[in-house]
Write a protein that binds this DNA or RNA. Structure first.
Lengths: 69, 69
DNA sequence: ACATTATGTCAAATATATTTTACATAAAGA
DNA sequence: TCTTTATGTAAAATATATTTGACATAATGT
């Protein structure tokens, strides 16, 4: 599956660790790691929570992630 | 939970039934119904498939659905 | 050298998205 | 009236998102 490099970059630009982001949105570090590495398919509520914490929208971080390899 | 009236409207404007949309995106009618009625929290891949079929983006159909009551 | 932080990954358990089957109602057409 | 289509809903089963606990490595600071 495709990695989500936009998410990784947005997180990095705020100087947040995977753990920081995970705690901010109420999931575990492994979940954030898996999303960034494309291992699975999060729920929309989680995506929205991540977007809000990173100051991005769904289209910016998750739209057409499938093509972005 | 909040109903997704934007989704319902977008589907209606293309004259698609819940069943039509469900088949187009590879889920059951009950899943589309539940999403429209806010009973749960679909996966991002499913949201993207729905958006593509309806000619909308994630932000247009799913962004900040939580507030939209 | 040692401790700490960040990341990657894995196996087993748990929570929940989704399916299957089924029943009910309202609207529309024949 | 009868049939069909669209929708809403519910209970039990299945698939999968997510957690928990653990181990490993690289980088950084003391």
């Amino acid at each position: 599956m495709a990695k989500n490099l936009r998410l990784k970059a947005a997180r990095a630009s705020l100087d947040l660790s995977q753990k920081d982001l995970a705690e901010a949105v109420g999931v575990t570090r492994q979940t954030i790691n898996a999303i960034e590495n494309g291992d699975y398919n999060p729920t929309i509520h989680l995506c929205i929570a991540i977007c809000k914490r990173l100051g991005k929208t769904l289209d910016q971080l998750f739209w057409e992630d499938e093509e972005n390899e």
